[in-house]
Design a protein around this nucleic acid. Structure first.
Lengths: 228, 228, 228, 228
DNA sequence: CATGAATGAGGATTCATTCAT
DNA sequence: AATGAATGAATCCTCATTCAT
């Protein structure tokens, strides 16, 4: 979870608006589109919106540059599709967890761990969120489907908090949004700032041992933050 | 403090190699260079390395595009200068504080507050760090002067921790680098992800009330994290 | 009548070569072709030969882009078909008139009026003639059927002139081609140059009052031109 | 004179807005720009706005494609500059004539002849006006300087008409705009429709003998139109 | 120190057309 | 008779950079 974890996302989201198509067929077609999307995800993550080259994306694909425009209409359209795709891929951490069946502390622990694991294993996603922030979030704000999902996340979190408060284990003065911010910040930063933090403090955040240590540490920090 | 706070930045670093020229007039010269640097900082922060336009930078300056090349040799050189400049501007939080004269808890509180305030008031710096991370930190790793500074920071932090542990107020199993990471993450994320977090959780992180709340919250979280 | 009025156009000319196919169903087939032709007429008139987009034409049609190629083989083929179509639609003004049954002056008056009315009510035709002239008339010269028709027009005009000369009402030193030129020029220009003339002389040639005035004026001018 | 003859045009019109230039120097610079303009005039006249190729224009020039964008910003900008240029080149026929010193009939004769000669000798101009009309006059309407000039033309024409009416030689019920329309139409059409008219009536309007004949004929037609 | 002119190399995008079914 | 997918070849345009003065 970074800018919030992703909620149920059951419906497959059609990223690039397909224009001028009358019927929908699965199969080959879809895979060309998906191949482009996969390659573009990498390119945009690694080079940013203006740094990415349509030519470079096309070359790493079995299709041609022309197909990119066929499916996505423009470089920007492709970027939007990529953004929507990566956001929609985040299966809601809470929904994978049946948060309500766990004791509050355990629920929070699992939420943090899943968030941490997701961010660690999806550096492209982290980079794309960075890119989007550098670009003033001009596209993320248009992803309506995504935004809906995120409001559910807060509700789930709130119910966990409520139970924790009721049981006397959590403080009462922390809002769901606060907890999400703390969790997101701690997990996201490790990945998003791996290069600068690593260079300046001369350490390798990707080191497995370091990672394991930080995973526990962040769980600990969040629980200490919530503890009554 | 973000990717680590900035240490004592003693020598002002001259970014663009300045070849010895006929007349080395101070004043005018310096201000042209600095004007370019100021404008470029904004442009690179707002549009990223490849998104920034040399033309655009020149136009917003009283000087010409040619001068950019005169002072900085290339767009990349200008970017490096900007990066070095913003990093060097961070006067070490610890050095401003005389950390050693404060009680450990108070010292940490002040460090967090200063870090928070710095990040909040320097969104361009945050953006540039983001940009640098999107670009794999390829330039930050070359800023030797900066890196030295950052190692001092860790030492100062360590001494605070040591005193806290000695007084029985802090846990013993937290390293300086861990604390810096936690502080940096919590302060940096609020600013770096303001667009995506704001859009997805439908809240305005820039709101003064929210900011005040989070400032206290982060101090609190860090102290809870350290507390024995 | 513009570049000459159109004569009887007895045989309907099939523009796009229609290869004999399995089922030559009338009706549907024909209407697809005609729909394309109608849309293409507008597009070519409004945007010129190279400005028109095959995609745009297809989209405004109930059929697909592929059908355009099926019927017309190429964009150029479609343009030729459009050109032939609009030229063939001009039913000979003279043939609608039974010119020989009218007194010479009356005959000329009616010819001018019909030409004027045709041009005014067929701006697409005018535009297409313009387009064709911008393209050096490379296609019109191939429309053999059309060219034949036009030579008849001259004969009819000549007979009117002859009768007028015989009756002493017309001058003898004006050829049929001269009269056609004068009539065509005066009627065509109003429509073809409506935009530039209107903009530069700040008047609206489409205004009904202006139009009525010019209609009479042109009849008058032509008769004065012919008067013995 | 076509869409109206051109008036005094004393001030040199700067066609393509030169951007980002602070001082103005004559000489070499200007000639590059003018060379582009000259070549572009031909290309746009021969192929229309969308048919013209920036590459083709550049190739026929001693400069590069890049310079076209440097001077004119876009293909459209170049087209606008061309249009303005050709319109501004029309030295006012009336102003070359000292219309007021001639007897009314003689004045009209000379105006017609000069208009005729101008149109005959500037087929590119005629074509460009055609192109502009195909494009709905979207650019000509913005040429403010040109439009001003054209309003003067009408005044000069009106004064000639007034003198002719006063002397009893001209009818009183013809407006300046009417006469300009008649003259423009007759002279313009011969050139603008040379391809289609020639093809359909199987004659060569460019033939010198034909041209001489038509020149007299048009003068005659206009005078007959005006005669009291 | 300063500047307007110039540009090669590349970058996004479009378009008429064809293929597989 | 019909169509959605696919594409090579342009086509317009941009950008960092250098030159001449």
């Amino acid at each position: 979870m970074t800018t919030g974890s992703a909620a149920a996302a059951k419906g497959r989201s059609r990223a690039g608006k397909r224009v001028g198509r009358k019927s929908e067929r699965r199969g080959e077609t879809e895979s060309s589109r998906e191949e482009i999307l996969a390659v573009a995800t990498e390119e945009f993550a690694q080079r940013g919106l203006s740094g990415a080259r349509v030519d470079a994306i096309a070359e790493r694909t079995r299709t041609s540059k022309r197909m990119i425009y066929y499916y996505f209409e423009s470089k920007e359209g492709l970027y939007k599709a990529v953004l929507e795709h990566v956001y929609s891929q985040i299966r809601s951490i809470e929904s994978h967890l049946d948060v309500d069946s766990l004791a509050p502390i355990e629920a929070v622990r699992r939420i943090v761990e899943l968030t941490f694991d997701y961010d660690e294993s999806h550096p492209h996603f982290i980079s794309l969120v960075n890119v989007e922030n550098v670009n003033h979030g001009q596209f993320v704000s248009k992803l309506v489907a995504i935004r809906k999902r995120y409001s559910n996340i807060l509700q789930l979190m709130q119910s966990v908090l409520d139970r924790g408060v009721a049981s006397g284990q959590f403080r009462a003065d922390v809002s769901a949004i606060d907890v999400r911010l703390v969790i997101a910040a701690l997990c996201f930063f490790r990945v998003s700032n791996r290069y600068t933090f690593g260079a300046l403090f001369d350490c390798d955040l990707a080191d497995p041992q370091m990672r394991r240590h930080h995973r526990q540490m962040i769980v600990d920090a969040v629980l200490r933050f919530l503890r009554a």
